[in-house]
């Protein structure tokens, strides 16, 4: 009798443990999630392979792009977020191909693909160790996704467990400029964001 009781108890215990494990098992995206280093604006945030600092984040309803004397206007159903900063590779030449805007509620927006290639955004450049370089990131997001947004930068979207830097921006979502112009320059830095402030 005792023996049967013991087996039943052992079985119940095993079932409980298994159920608990099933409930608490992490998602695949959690297991393979990137290794995050985070920080705020105007700070140099270091990941193991690269460092990034952001010094300007501006929001506008309309984006004008001026390349070689020609100007084109880009409208949006939301707003444009224009972020500038500096990135540097630490040990070996690398590219930063993935840039995302993570809204306060966890929704992701990728770098816009609408700007002409003559405006070189972050993914277009190679970063050499010891040579910091200005970066430009332009996002198109709904107005409600602006406040509390975070810029997420990684070498690639495809490598699990790779470095990722998250920088929480200081935009409130209230200070929206009517229009911003990105002008392509002949020399460094390759662009200027206007009006200057």
């Amino acid at each position: 009798m005792m023996r049967i009781m013991r087996s039943v108890l052992a079985l119940l215990f095993a079932a409980a443990v298994l159920y608990g494990m099933q409930l608490t098992r992490p998602l695949y995206s959690d297991i393979t999630s990137p290794i995050v280093s985070s920080g705020g604006m105007n700070k140099r945030v270091q990941a193991s392979a690269f460092a990034l600092s952001l010094d300007s984040a501006r929001v506008a309803r309309v984006l004008n792009v001026e390349t070689f004397g020609k100007s084109k206007t880009y409208t949006s159903s939301g707003v444009w977020v224009v972020v500038e900063g500096e990135a540097e590779a630490k040990f070996e030449t690398l590219r930063l191909t993935s840039g995302e805007w993570l809204s306060g509620s966890g929704i992701r927006y990728v770098l816009t693909g609408r700007l002409p290639a003559t405006i070189e955004m972050m993914p277009g450049d190679a970063y050499q160790p010891g040579l910091p370089r200005r970066v430009l990131l332009v996002f198109e997001v709904p107005e409600e996704a602006v406040a509390g947004g975070t810029v997420v930068v990684a070498r690639t979207k495809l490598l699990p467990l790779d470095d990722e830097i998250r920088i929480t921006t200081d935009v409130s979502g209230k200070d929206i400029e009517p229009a911003i112009t990105i002008r392509r320059n002949e020399e460094r830095p390759p662009w200027t964001v206007l009006p200057q402030r």
Binding site: S77, G78, E140
Partner: peptide, 17 residues
């Protein structure tokens, strides 16, 4: 994309196009 009269890329969440 109608807005640009050009090839469309990604469609961002909650942005009607």
């Amino acid at each position: 994309l109608d807005r640009d009269k050009y090839l469309a890329g990604y469609f961002n969440p909650n942005m009607p196009e």
